[in-house]
Amino acid sequence: MSPSPTPNRITGAALLAGIAGQPVSHSLSPVIHNAWLEAGGIDGVYAPFAPKDAAGFDALVAAGRAGLVQGLNVTAPFKQQAFALASEASKAAQATGSANILVFEDGRVFADSSDGVGVLYALAEQAPALNLQGAVVVMLGAGGAARAGAGALIEAGAGIRILNRSRDRAEALAADLGPSVKVADETALASADLVINALSVQPGIDLSVLKPDAVVMDMTYKPVVTPFLAAAKARGLTTVDGLAMLIGQATPSFTALFRRPPPPLDLRALLLSHLGDAA
Protein backbone atom coordinates (compact mmCIF):
# COMPACT_ATOMS: atom_id res chain seq x y z
CA MET A 1 0.00 0.00 0.00
CA SER A 2 1.49 3.34 -1.05
CA PRO A 3 1.94 6.01 1.63
CA SER A 4 -0.62 8.84 1.78
CA PRO A 5 0.47 12.20 0.39
CA THR A 6 2.39 14.33 2.86
CA PRO A 7 1.58 18.00 3.38
CA ASN A 8 3.87 20.50 1.72
CA ARG A 9 7.11 20.83 3.65
CA ILE A 10 9.04 24.00 4.39
CA THR A 11 12.46 24.11 2.73
CA GLY A 12 15.22 26.65 2.34
CA ALA A 13 13.41 27.95 -0.73
CA ALA A 14 10.21 28.70 1.19
CA LEU A 15 8.31 31.88 0.32
CA LEU A 16 7.65 34.04 3.42
CA ALA A 17 4.79 36.53 3.64
CA GLY A 18 2.40 37.54 6.39
CA ILE A 19 0.13 40.08 7.99
CA ALA A 20 1.20 43.04 10.11
CA GLY A 21 -1.09 44.66 12.67
CA GLN A 22 -1.47 45.52 16.33
CA PRO A 23 -3.18 43.50 17.58
CA VAL A 24 -3.00 40.73 14.99
CA SER A 25 -3.66 37.51 16.92
CA HIS A 26 -7.39 37.66 16.05
CA SER A 27 -6.75 37.76 12.29
CA LEU A 28 -8.18 35.03 10.08
CA SER A 29 -5.75 35.84 7.26
CA PRO A 30 -3.15 33.24 8.38
CA VAL A 31 -5.93 30.61 8.41
CA ILE A 32 -6.91 31.52 4.83
CA HIS A 33 -3.46 31.85 3.28
CA ASN A 34 -1.88 28.85 4.97
CA ALA A 35 -4.86 26.71 3.90
CA TRP A 36 -4.26 27.85 0.31
CA LEU A 37 -0.54 27.11 0.60
CA GLU A 38 -1.28 23.60 1.86
CA ALA A 39 -3.99 22.96 -0.73
CA GLY A 40 -1.63 24.03 -3.51
CA GLY A 41 1.38 22.15 -2.15
CA ILE A 42 3.25 25.47 -2.16
CA ASP A 43 6.54 25.76 -0.29
CA GLY A 44 5.64 28.82 1.75
CA VAL A 45 4.53 30.32 5.05
CA TYR A 46 2.10 33.14 5.88
CA ALA A 47 2.92 34.44 9.36
CA PRO A 48 1.48 37.04 11.75
CA PHE A 49 3.68 40.03 12.64
CA ALA A 50 2.78 42.34 15.53
CA PRO A 51 5.05 45.42 15.52
CA LYS A 52 4.51 47.21 18.80
CA ASP A 53 4.54 50.68 17.25
CA ALA A 54 5.24 52.74 14.12
CA ALA A 55 8.99 52.26 14.55
CA GLY A 56 8.49 48.51 14.68
CA PHE A 57 6.49 48.62 11.46
CA ASP A 58 9.27 50.67 9.85
CA ALA A 59 11.70 47.92 10.84
CA LEU A 60 9.44 45.24 9.33
CA VAL A 61 9.26 47.12 6.03
CA ALA A 62 13.05 47.53 6.11
CA ALA A 63 13.28 43.73 6.45
CA GLY A 64 11.12 43.43 3.37
CA ARG A 65 13.34 45.82 1.44
CA ALA A 66 16.30 43.68 2.52
CA GLY A 67 14.68 40.56 1.05
CA LEU A 68 13.74 38.84 4.32
CA VAL A 69 10.00 38.97 3.63
CA GLN A 70 8.51 39.04 0.15
CA GLY A 71 5.21 40.66 1.00
CA LEU A 72 2.77 41.73 3.69
CA ASN A 73 -0.88 42.25 4.26
CA VAL A 74 -1.35 45.25 6.52
CA THR A 75 -4.14 45.91 8.99
CA ALA A 76 -4.84 48.52 11.67
CA PRO A 77 -3.14 50.69 12.73
CA PHE A 78 -0.50 50.59 9.98
CA LYS A 79 -2.40 50.98 6.67
CA GLN A 80 -1.67 54.68 6.16
CA GLN A 81 1.94 54.23 7.27
CA ALA A 82 2.27 51.38 4.77
CA PHE A 83 1.11 53.66 1.97
CA ALA A 84 3.52 56.40 3.05
CA LEU A 85 6.50 54.00 2.99
CA ALA A 86 5.83 52.70 -0.52
CA SER A 87 8.03 53.41 -3.52
CA GLU A 88 5.02 53.01 -5.82
CA ALA A 89 1.28 52.69 -5.20
CA SER A 90 -1.69 51.40 -7.17
CA LYS A 91 -4.64 53.62 -8.06
CA ALA A 92 -6.72 51.88 -5.40
CA ALA A 93 -4.16 52.69 -2.70
CA GLN A 94 -3.73 56.24 -3.96
CA ALA A 95 -7.49 56.81 -3.88
CA THR A 96 -7.65 56.26 -0.13
CA GLY A 97 -4.10 57.03 1.01
CA SER A 98 -3.84 53.61 2.63
CA ALA A 99 -2.60 50.14 1.74
CA ASN A 100 -3.36 46.63 2.94
CA ILE A 101 -0.81 44.97 0.62
CA LEU A 102 2.93 45.64 0.41
CA VAL A 103 5.05 43.70 -2.07
CA PHE A 104 8.85 43.83 -1.81
CA GLU A 105 11.02 43.42 -4.86
CA ASP A 106 14.67 44.39 -5.38
CA GLY A 107 14.60 46.85 -2.47
CA ARG A 108 11.42 48.56 -3.65
CA VAL A 109 8.01 48.61 -1.98
CA PHE A 110 4.80 48.38 -4.01
CA ALA A 111 1.55 49.30 -2.22
CA ASP A 112 -1.93 48.18 -3.14
CA SER A 113 -5.35 48.00 -1.51
CA SER A 114 -7.74 45.08 -1.90
CA ASP A 115 -10.20 46.29 0.75
CA GLY A 116 -12.37 47.90 -1.90
CA VAL A 117 -12.29 44.68 -3.92
CA GLY A 118 -13.48 42.88 -0.80
CA VAL A 119 -16.41 45.27 -0.30
CA LEU A 120 -17.53 44.92 -3.93
CA TYR A 121 -17.16 41.12 -3.82
CA ALA A 122 -19.27 40.89 -0.65
CA LEU A 123 -22.00 43.14 -2.07
CA ALA A 124 -22.11 41.25 -5.37
CA GLU A 125 -22.36 37.92 -3.55
CA GLN A 126 -24.87 38.78 -0.83
CA ALA A 127 -26.76 41.81 -2.23
CA PRO A 128 -26.71 41.23 -6.00
CA ALA A 129 -29.77 43.45 -6.62
CA LEU A 130 -27.99 46.55 -5.29
CA ASN A 131 -26.92 48.99 -8.03
CA LEU A 132 -24.06 51.16 -6.77
CA GLN A 133 -24.28 53.63 -9.67
CA GLY A 134 -25.91 56.68 -8.09
CA ALA A 135 -26.47 54.87 -4.79
CA VAL A 136 -26.36 56.71 -1.47
CA VAL A 137 -23.99 54.93 0.91
CA VAL A 138 -23.99 55.92 4.58
CA MET A 139 -20.67 54.96 6.14
CA LEU A 140 -20.70 54.64 9.91
CA GLY A 141 -17.25 55.66 11.09
CA ALA A 142 -14.38 57.72 9.73
CA GLY A 143 -11.39 55.54 10.56
CA GLY A 144 -9.17 53.28 8.51
CA ALA A 145 -11.89 50.77 7.65
CA ALA A 146 -14.16 53.51 6.27
CA ARG A 147 -11.28 55.00 4.29
CA ALA A 148 -10.26 51.66 2.84
CA GLY A 149 -13.72 50.70 1.64
CA ALA A 150 -14.75 54.08 0.24
CA GLY A 151 -12.51 54.26 -2.83
CA ALA A 152 -14.07 51.32 -4.69
CA LEU A 153 -17.59 52.50 -3.84
CA ILE A 154 -16.84 55.95 -5.27
CA GLU A 155 -15.35 54.39 -8.40
CA ALA A 156 -18.51 52.28 -8.77
CA GLY A 157 -20.55 55.49 -8.88
CA ALA A 158 -21.83 55.74 -5.32
CA GLY A 159 -22.01 58.86 -3.18
CA ILE A 160 -20.67 58.45 0.36
CA ARG A 161 -22.16 60.08 3.45
CA ILE A 162 -19.91 59.85 6.50
CA LEU A 163 -21.73 59.55 9.82
CA ASN A 164 -19.29 59.76 12.71
CA ARG A 165 -19.37 60.88 16.33
CA SER A 166 -16.39 63.18 15.73
CA ARG A 167 -17.42 65.60 12.98
CA ASP A 168 -13.86 66.91 12.61
CA ARG A 169 -12.59 63.44 11.76
CA ALA A 170 -15.42 62.91 9.29
CA GLU A 171 -14.67 66.25 7.61
CA ALA A 172 -10.97 65.35 7.33
CA LEU A 173 -11.84 62.03 5.65
CA ALA A 174 -14.30 63.71 3.27
CA ALA A 175 -11.66 66.28 2.32
CA ASP A 176 -9.17 63.51 1.56
CA LEU A 177 -11.56 61.43 -0.55
CA GLY A 178 -13.05 64.17 -2.71
CA PRO A 179 -16.43 65.62 -3.73
CA SER A 180 -18.30 62.30 -3.78
CA VAL A 181 -17.94 62.15 0.00
CA LYS A 182 -19.90 64.39 2.37
CA VAL A 183 -20.33 64.60 6.11
CA ALA A 184 -23.85 63.71 7.24
CA ASP A 185 -26.06 63.31 10.28
CA GLU A 186 -28.66 60.63 11.01
CA THR A 187 -31.20 62.21 8.65
CA ALA A 188 -29.13 60.73 5.79
CA LEU A 189 -30.23 57.24 6.83
CA ALA A 190 -33.71 57.73 5.40
CA SER A 191 -32.33 58.01 1.85
CA ALA A 192 -29.59 55.37 2.21
CA ASP A 193 -29.42 52.54 -0.31
CA LEU A 194 -26.56 50.97 1.63
CA VAL A 195 -25.44 51.39 5.24
CA ILE A 196 -21.98 50.11 6.16
CA ASN A 197 -20.75 49.74 9.71
CA ALA A 198 -17.03 50.54 9.61
CA LEU A 199 -16.78 50.96 13.37
CA SER A 200 -15.06 48.51 15.70
CA VAL A 201 -18.16 48.62 17.93
CA GLN A 202 -21.83 48.05 17.25
CA PRO A 203 -23.60 51.25 16.13
CA GLY A 204 -26.65 52.62 17.90
CA ILE A 205 -28.66 53.84 14.92
CA ASP A 206 -32.39 53.52 14.33
CA LEU A 207 -32.83 50.92 11.58
CA SER A 208 -36.56 51.63 11.37
CA VAL A 209 -35.89 54.78 9.32
CA LEU A 210 -34.23 52.79 6.50
CA LYS A 211 -35.99 52.11 3.21
CA PRO A 212 -37.37 48.56 2.94
CA ASP A 213 -34.95 47.78 0.09
CA ALA A 214 -31.89 49.20 1.87
CA VAL A 215 -28.85 46.94 2.31
CA VAL A 216 -26.99 46.75 5.62
CA MET A 217 -23.35 45.65 5.79
CA ASP A 218 -21.04 45.12 8.74
CA MET A 219 -17.28 44.99 8.17
CA THR A 220 -16.87 43.04 11.42
CA TYR A 221 -16.90 39.23 11.14
CA LYS A 222 -16.74 38.11 14.77
CA PRO A 223 -19.46 37.01 15.14
CA VAL A 224 -20.39 36.59 11.49
CA VAL A 225 -23.96 37.69 12.22
CA THR A 226 -23.32 40.71 14.42
CA PRO A 227 -26.09 42.25 16.58
CA PHE A 228 -26.28 45.02 13.95
CA LEU A 229 -26.89 42.51 11.15
CA ALA A 230 -29.29 40.48 13.30
CA ALA A 231 -31.38 43.61 13.93
CA ALA A 232 -31.38 44.37 10.19
CA LYS A 233 -32.42 40.79 9.36
CA ALA A 234 -35.25 41.08 11.89
CA ARG A 235 -36.56 44.06 9.90
CA GLY A 236 -36.42 42.05 6.67
CA LEU A 237 -33.47 43.99 5.24
CA THR A 238 -30.79 42.47 3.00
CA THR A 239 -27.56 42.00 4.95
CA VAL A 240 -23.90 41.57 3.98
CA ASP A 241 -21.36 40.20 6.44
CA GLY A 242 -17.72 41.01 7.02
CA LEU A 243 -16.64 37.44 6.34
CA ALA A 244 -17.61 37.85 2.67
CA MET A 245 -15.50 41.03 2.54
CA LEU A 246 -12.52 39.22 4.08
CA ILE A 247 -12.82 36.41 1.54
CA GLY A 248 -13.13 38.88 -1.33
CA GLN A 249 -9.96 40.75 -0.47
CA ALA A 250 -7.93 37.60 0.19
CA THR A 251 -7.57 36.41 -3.43
CA PRO A 252 -5.79 39.52 -4.76
CA SER A 253 -3.67 39.52 -1.60
CA PHE A 254 -2.49 35.93 -2.10
CA THR A 255 -1.84 36.55 -5.80
CA ALA A 256 0.31 39.59 -5.00
CA LEU A 257 2.21 38.05 -2.09
CA PHE A 258 2.90 34.60 -3.56
CA ARG A 259 3.02 35.62 -7.25
CA ARG A 260 0.34 33.11 -8.30
CA PRO A 261 -3.44 32.73 -7.89
CA PRO A 262 -4.69 30.62 -4.98
CA PRO A 263 -5.95 27.06 -5.56
CA PRO A 264 -9.70 26.36 -5.42
CA LEU A 265 -10.96 26.10 -1.84
CA ASP A 266 -14.30 26.67 -0.08
CA LEU A 267 -13.07 29.44 2.18
CA ARG A 268 -16.42 30.27 3.73
CA ALA A 269 -16.93 26.70 4.96
CA LEU A 270 -13.34 26.62 6.23
CA LEU A 271 -13.71 29.90 8.12
CA LEU A 272 -17.13 29.12 9.56
CA SER A 273 -15.72 25.86 10.87
CA HIS A 274 -12.75 27.71 12.35
CA LEU A 275 -15.01 30.29 13.99
CA GLY A 276 -17.41 27.63 15.24
CA ASP A 277 -20.39 29.27 13.49
CA ALA A 278 -23.18 27.39 11.79
CA ALA A 279 -23.41 27.90 8.04
Rank of each mutant, 00 (worst) to 15 (best):
M1P: 13
S4M: 11
P7N: 13
T11W: 11
G12Y: 10
G12Q: 07
A13Q: 15
Q22P: 01
H26W: 07
V31I: 15
I32V: 12
W36E: 10
W36N: 10
A39W: 04
V45P: 00
A47H: 09
P48C: 07
P51D: 06
A55Y: 00
A55F: 02
G56L: 04
G56H: 07
A59H: 07
A59N: 05
G71V: 05
G71K: 00
V74C: 06
P77A: 04
Q81L: 01
F83E: 04
F83A: 06
S87P: 00
S87I: 01
K91N: 14
A99N: 00
V103L: 13
V103A: 15
F104L: 06
E105M: 03
D106E: 15
D106Y: 05
G107H: 02
R108Y: 06
A111R: 00
A111E: 00
D115W: 10
D115R: 07
V117M: 09
A122D: 04
L123M: 08
L130E: 03
N131M: 04
L132H: 04
G134M: 10
A135G: 05
V137I: 12
A145W: 05
R147P: 08
G151Q: 07
A156R: 14
G159V: 03
I160M: 14
I162N: 09
I162E: 10
R165E: 13
R165D: 14
R167N: 00
D168G: 02
D168E: 15
A170K: 02
A172P: 06
A174I: 12
A175G: 14
A175L: 13
L177D: 08
G178P: 07
K182L: 15
A192F: 08
V195Q: 04
I196T: 03
N197V: 01
N197E: 05
V201Y: 00
Q202A: 13
Q202V: 12
G204F: 01
S208C: 03
L210M: 11
K211W: 11
D213C: 05
D213W: 05
A214T: 14
M219L: 15
M219G: 04
Y221F: 08
Y221S: 02
K222N: 15
K233W: 09
A234I: 05
T239H: 03
V240T: 01
G242K: 02
L246H: 00
I247N: 00
T251A: 14
S253C: 11
T255D: 09
T255Q: 12
L257Q: 04
L257T: 00
D266S: 07
D266C: 01
L267N: 08
R268A: 00
R268G: 00
A269M: 01
L272A: 09
L272W: 12
S273I: 05
D277S: 15
D277F: 15
A278N: 12
A279Q: 05
